[in-house]
Amino acid sequence: MTRMIIALPLAALLAACNNQGGNQASTSSVTQVTGAGSTFVYPVLSAWAADYKSRGGADINYQSIGSGGGISQVKAGTVDFGATDQPLASDELAKSNLAQFPIVIGGIVAVVNIPGLEAGKLRLTGPVLADIYAGKIKTWNDPVIAKLNPGASLPGADIAVVHRSDGSGTTFNFTHYLSQVSPTWKGGPGEGKTVNWPTGVGGKGNEGVAGYVKQIPNSIGYVEYAYVIQNKMTYAQLQNSAGAFVSPSADSFSAAAESADWKNAKDFNLVMTDAPGQSAYPITATTFVLMPKQPKDKAKSDAALAFFRNALEKGQDQAKKLDYVPLPAPLVQQIEAYIAANVK
């Protein structure tokens, strides 16, 4: 009796272990590609992956562990591609023999949880946002905020600041913007995938920040636009460099993307925040894919590239549906030429 209890699970386990050998032999067309990195791009990458698989493509298993994680895992070779919102400089790419190209554009939105306040009704400027995150503006009814929002009833409650607890390209773009518009921020915490936050709680991933903002009353956080739409969160309008208050939307992101100078960016190393233009949204960001130039598993690398090519050419509608901005056609052509030249 005891023997049977022990034998059955063991037999099942042996079957499971042997299955892997059989799997690779019989269904060699179903390759498993592993990628990791930015949580910013997670909604659209996983939707693309599910769609790609349903049309007979490879399994593209993408895990959102943060841009920093994506960079270090692809450098360590433990994943087949990485995704990051902070582009690497050409010398860093050369040191690790990586190729880098954009895959999608989106916006980073300030979201708030103020009881009674609707989406798009709160107006903020870059310097005010920087001061909130620096802990200089402590309550919602601070005169500086009130001046921007005449007629809005702001509570006297303390602002609960939410930022990222993990390394994040979203944080990089957000703090890059804050450094551009606020000299005190630039001299203080500065920009980076993680910074020394003066105040606030840290959520893990875009998911964590969205979750905290939804839970904690009178809070403010920054998340990717897709997370805002999926969860019907209350976003704030931001004042752009032209002085206009802009709501985050596919149109305002496109307006920012149009002014970007991709042709002259080596290895696409370009950050688009605080873009000029009347209707441009100030915190627009690009997600980049990192892949080894000489991959150790060519089959997986080719499968990943096929997936990305598919996404660049056919996936843009799906991206739009999830509220990302598709890449402009000339950029797509530039990317395809780059891949052909760099990834063997």
């Binding site: 943060g66 270090s72 390394g167 994040s168």
Partner: peptide, 18 residues
């Protein structure tokens, strides 16, 4: 107020320590 613990810090930050 929020804080951090050793185990939570490692769990949160290790994968992205570059």
């Amino acid at each position: 107020m929020p804080s951090n613990s050793i185990a939570a810090a490692i769990a949160n930050e290790f994968t992205e320590a570059d």
